[in-house]
Design a protein around this nucleic acid. Sequence first.
DNA 1: TAAGCGTGGTT
DNA 2: TAACCAAGCTT
Length: 352
Amino acid sequence: MNELVISDRVLAWFAHHGRRGLPWQVLRTAYRVWVSEIMLQQTQVQTVLRYFPPFVERFPNVTALARADLDEVLRLWSGLGYYARARNLHRTARILVNEYDGNLPLDHERLQCLPGIGRSTAGAILALASDQRHPILDGNVKRVLCRHQAIEGWPGHARVTKHLWQLADEYTPHQHSVAEYTQGIMDLGSMVCTRVRPRCGACPLRADCRAHAQARVNDFPEARPRRGLPLRRTTFVVVRRPDGCVLLERRPTVGVWGGLWSFPECSSEKDAKDWCLRRFGQRPAVSLRLPLKRHRFSHFHLEISPIVLDIAAPQRCVMEVDSVLWYKGGESKIGGLPAPVAGLLNGLLPNS
DNA sequence: TAAGCGTGGTT
DNA sequence: TAACCAAGCTT
């Protein structure tokens, strides 16, 4: 088997050990492959399995997605993270309806012009849904290539990335079975050529793997250069009315949790009380400090001080003004909530 | 070019 | 625990 070219060895391995039966593999339309590829960006399969079925059930095709409100799309995306993906998915669906008769263009250049679709996602859509010959380069493929060719340097470095794309292209079969090879090389990376303790004994590429030959499998791929993560502190102001409704506001599109609903933020507890006084003309009757919550983001740590301000003035139960609303669990068609905000709400709302 | 973008799994 | 990473893309 080792005299076979790489793609044939991957295909043979895939035929016996490949991963099958994932929801986007069973009913493999271009739309479902697209949605799954977007969800799978920087996100593990196990996580996507919880989000993909409800999403495609509510939005079974491009038209359904394009017709929906962005808020509803974000609601089904809540907790998945990287919310720009959801905004781009929605925006692209509307472009497809307006310019492509509701279909994804099965064209490498045109796909990459659509929001949220880069080179790898375009390649994956075309390879998996259309069997066209285009390489992909995700984390799994990078790891396989880095080890097989003993590539030095961090894969995120531009020079290394360029090299990896070249290799990914060379490894892709020219004549047939591009879809299966693409699935196979990813499965190989996720099931055999794993980040820690790879199962080299089960690898069809072991015979000519340079990292294995040098007994340096653990040296590849090189880790990202380290930086200390800065700590940001913020205060979540939970303004609560006597009926239990809390004030939420839509966050700006840019920045963390863009376009999602969250609590107003202040720089300190004192600022929060001053802000409450200015906004509602009263000092809160009760102020309750909740435990600090630390959150880890890719580029910083966030320390949240949640403070609950109970105000006395009765106001209309449902106030929806563009980007501000009083929220009481359940009945409202609330848009997307960041996971930490959803967690806080669960502990605060009376009927949840 | 490199920083910014979320959350959960793993060690 | 804290660091690292995951079916990357955008600006």
